[in-house]
Structure formats: C-alpha cells, structure tokens
Amino acid sequence: MTHSTELDISTADIGNATRTFQEKKRTSLAGTSQERVAELTTEVLTAIHDVIRRHELTYAEYDALKAWLIKVGQDGEWPLFLDVFVEHAVEGVATANRPGSKGSILGPFYVPGAPRAEGEITLPMRADEPGTPLLFRAHVRSADGTPLPGAQVDVWQSDADGLYSQFAPGIPEWNLRGVVIADGGGRVAIRTMDPAPYQIPHDGATGQLITAAGWHAWRPAHLHFKVMADGHQVLTSQLYFTGGAYTDADVASAVKPELMLDPTPAADGAGNEVDYDFVLAPI
C-alpha cells in the first residue's frame, strides 16, 4: 500500500461532511431529562475549569482558544474534529455491552444511497483505478450463529491516494462505494482495491491544532462498513490491515485488535483476498 503525500483531503472538501451531517435527520434531546443535561454539562465545564486552574491558563492562551474554536466552525470542521478526537470514546461506551463483532467509528465520509447488488459486488471504480485488487468475503450472522440472509452490507473506502469520492474533486460520485445484500447463506463478496493510509484534512483548524501539538494527521488504511439486518442492531465498523502503517498510532484512536485483516494472495492470482465474519447483536 502507498502513502498519500500530496493528494490529501482538504479543508474545502471536508465541508461536504458538515453539509451531509446537517442534512441528516436531526437528533433531538427531547428524551433527555433536564437533570441529565445539567449533570453532563456541569461535569464538562468543571473539567475545563480544572484544566485552566491546574495549568494556569493565560489570557493569551484563552484568546487563542476562542479564535481557534471560531475557526473550526468557519472551516466547517466540527464533524471532522469530533469524529477524529471524540467519537471513538462515544462508540466504546455505546457498544461496551453489545455481543457480536466489535464496532468502530462512523467517521465523516459516509454517504447513503450507494449502488446496490445481490450477493456479490464489484465496487464502482475508474477503468484505470490504481492499487492492488482485493476480494473481501464476509459471512453475516446473528450472535447465536444463525446466518442472516438479506443482510445489507454498506461499504466505502478511500482510493490508493487516500481520497474519498464526494469529498475530493475529480473522482466519480460513487467511486469505491457500494451496498451488497447477503445471499441465502448470509454471505457477501466485495471486489475492490486496497485502500491507502491518508492524512485527515490538516490545512484548516484541526490541522492547526495537530501542528501546534506536534502530532501527526495519519489514519491507517481501512475499509468502512455499516451492516444491517432485520431484528438486529446496526454494526458500524472499520477494518484495518495487519502490519499496516499507523495501525499503532491512529490519529482517530479507532483501531482495535478485533478489527484487523490479514489478506493472502488471491487464488486467481489477482491481488489479495480475505475472509471476515460480521456477527450482529439482536435488538
């Protein structure tokens, strides 16, 4: 796999993530009590106040923080910042007691409505799509081992330059995005290309923070999935590659040991292949 170095997702492109999020069905706090809101808000503010006091924050640093928070909004990077630095903790709490496969963060690049196929799909791609072919086979089953025919497996990924369709210019709309419906045995097959490690957008406010802190902006190569079946909880996951760059230093802290793939050379000699089980928790 190659590393993306020049063709990185930009702040302008990540603005699509903000628009996509805003177009989703709004999440309401109507079911959350005033006591819960007060408790969470008080604890967050108390933690911030504690950091200020312990580190004797100066007014210059405070003003820099205000300016940076404003810039995050102006750059449309709140989905990016929260998905990279916060979502992994929310996901861990939300799924801590769920049986079945481990999940991971959704991230900012999911787009519903990708082309669909039954049983097997070759993801839409350019005629000269760069990279190494990958055949991904999966068995979708319930936590009790029962296969789940008709399960929907939504997959999306970056290309060999670390870029996502609909979030970078010059890439066809549904490039390397698709939905495959499991066959009667709960099995799917996806023909695609190896993804690449990439840097999250770092020319805006989020990158400004990363640079100031001396961190790196890299994510390891991964495939994204949303797996759905009637009567079961939705599984959102990212699958990574054994030995891949940045799997031990993901800027989004989303890698888990259970999410590693170890492809082998394909039987037909065309690239690599790998098998995986998606185990869904009943509702």
Rank of each mutant, 00 (worst) to 15 (best):
T5S: 11
T5A: 08
E6F: 10
L7G: 15
I14K: 09
G15R: 04
R26L: 15
T27L: 12
S28E: 13
S33K: 14
A38V: 05
T41S: 05
R53C: 02
H55L: 15
L65S: 06
L65H: 02
K66F: 14
K66P: 14
A67M: 03
W68S: 01
V72N: 05
W78T: 01
P79A: 06
P79Q: 08
F81Q: 09
F85L: 01
A89N: 10
A89R: 03
V90K: 07
E91R: 13
G92F: 01
T95S: 05
T95A: 07
N97K: 14
K102V: 13
G103R: 00
I105H: 15
Y110I: 11
A114N: 01
E129Y: 02
P130A: 04
F136M: 09
F136S: 07
V140A: 10
D144W: 07
P149T: 10
G150Q: 00
W156M: 01
R177M: 05
G178C: 07
V179G: 08
V179W: 11
A182C: 00
A182F: 02
D183G: 02
G185R: 11
I190M: 06
M193K: 05
P195V: 03
Y198V: 08
G204C: 04
Q208K: 14
A212I: 08
A212C: 13
P220C: 03
D230Q: 15
A249E: 10
K256A: 05
K256Q: 07
L259P: 10
L261G: 03
A267Q: 13
G269K: 07
N272E: 15
D275S: 08
Y276F: 15
Y276Q: 13
